[in-house]
Design a protein around this nucleic acid. Structure first.
Lengths: 193, 193
DNA sequence: TTCAAATATAAACATTTGTTGATGTAAAAT
DNA sequence: ATTTTACATCAACAAATGTTTATATTTGAA
C-alpha cells in the first residue's frame, strides 16, 4: 500500500511533458513512453487525463490563495502587503515553475464542472488583490486609480515569472527580481528629479 | 475569381471559434458546422488547419512590429515613445481583440518551421522594447533598472488588454485605459508626498 | 448562351486518442 | 506459505479528426 513514489514520478513526468507540448498535444502514450511502460499502466496511477490537469491546477491555486489570505489577514500596511504578495508570487514561481506555467497556459482545458470552479477561484483571487489595492488607496498609501485596471495590470505583470525558472538560461536572482519588480510596480519607470 | 467575401467569413468564424474553444479543441467540423456547410468545403478556402493559425498570427504580429518600428524611428523622447507603444497596444487590442487573444494563447500550437520563425519575431519584439527602455535610461528619462526584467514586466502587463474587448461586460474606455496604464507604468501605485 | 470559377456535398481514408478488460508477475504484508 | 498490493503487458474499442477524391450545383463573365 505505497502508491506514492511511482505515482509522483508519473505526475512529474506528465507535468514536464505538458509544459513542453501543451496539455492537448500531450498524449497518454507520450507520458507512458517517457516512463518506459505501456499506456494502460498509466491508469494504475490516475483515473483520467483530466485528473492530471485538475490535480496540479487546484493544488497550486490553493497555494496562491493560502499565501494571499495570510497576507491580507496580517497587520502590515497596504504597501507592505503588496510587496509580500509579489514576493509570494516569485517564491511559488521559483519553487514550482512547471505548476505555475500550467496555471497560466492550460487552465482553459479544464472541463465542466471543474472549469467553472476554477474560474471562480481566479475571479476570487482577483477580488482579493482588488481589495488590497482599494485599502491601499483608502489608507493613502496608494494613489487614486481605477482598481479594475490596476488589478489586471499588476496580476498580468507578474504572470511571466515562471519563465525565468523554466528557462535555464536566464536564472534570475530571486532577490534582484523582487527588488526590481517591487520598484517598478511601486514607482514605475520614470526618473523623478 | 472572387474568393474574398466567403473566405473572409470562414476565417472570421474560425477565429471566433478558436477563441471560444482553443485551437486544438476546435475541429474543422466545428467551423464548417457554424458556416452551415460540410467539412470538406472548408478546404476550398484554406489548405490546412494550421494555415488558419499561421495566417492570423503572422499578420497580427506584423501589425505590432510595424507600429513599434515607426515609434522607434520617430524623434520623440523615450518616455513619449513608451507611451505611444502602450497606446498602440491598446488600439490593436481594441480593433482586433480576437487576433490578439490568439497571439497570447495559441502561438504554441504552431508547427515547425513556422513555430521557430514566430518565436524569433517575439524575441525581436522584446529586443525592440528593451532598446526603447535602454535609451530611456541613457537619456535620463527612465531610472536605472534591470532591462530584461523591466521588458518582461511591461510587455506582460499589457498582455491582458484583449480581455477588456472580448468580454462585452467590461468595455473599458480606451482613453481611460491608456491614462491609467501609462500612469501605472510611469509612476507606479505609490502616492508620493 | 457558354464556360470557367466559386461553392457545395458525399464518401471514405488513415491515424490518433483516451480508456477498458483480462491477465500476468514481483514484492510485501499477513 | 499464502494472500494482497503494486506494477506491468497485450489486445482491442469506439470515437474523433484532418484531409483527399470525385462529383455536383450555382453564378458571374465572355
Amino acid at each position: 500500500m505505497n502508491l506514492g513514489s511511482k505515482k509522483e514520478a508519473f505526475l512529474q513526468t506528465s507535468l514536464q511533458l505538458i509544459h513542453e507540448k501543451g496539455f492537448k498535444a500531450t498524449t497518454m502514450r507520450d507520458i507512458a513512453e517517457r516512463m518506459n511502460f505501456d499506456v494502460s499502466n498509466s491508469y494504475n496511477y490516475i483515473r483520467s487525463k483530466q485528473d492530471i490537469l485538475e490535480l496540479f491546477l487546484f493544488r497550486t491555486s490553493e497555494e496562491f490563495h493560502h499565501a494571499i489570505d495570510n497576507i491580507l489577514d496580517s497587520n502590515y500596511a497596504s504597501d507592505e502587503k503588496l510587496k509580500q504578495v509579489i514576493s509570494a508570487h516569485i517564491q511559488v514561481a521559483a519553487k514550482k515553475p512547471l505548476e505555475v506555467a500550467l496555471m497560466v497556459n492550460e487552465w482553459r482545458n479544464l472541463k465542466e464542472p471543474k472549469y467553472s470552479s476554477y474560474v471562480e477561484l481566479r475571479v476570487l483571487y482577483e477580488k482579493k488583490m482588488a481589495k488590497l489595492l482599494r485599502e491601499g488607496v483608502k489608507s493613502g498609501k496608494f494613489k487614486e486609480m481605477n482598481i479594475k485596471i490596476a488589478t489586471a495590470l499588476i496580476l498580468s505583470s507578474i504572470r511571466w515569472l515562471y519563465d525565468s525558472y523554466t528557462d535555464e538560461n536566464s536564472a534570475l536572482n530571486p532577490v534582484e527580481l523582487e527588488r526590481e519588480i517591487v520598484g517598478l510596480v511601486f514607482n514605475g519607470v520614470l526618473l523623478k528629479h
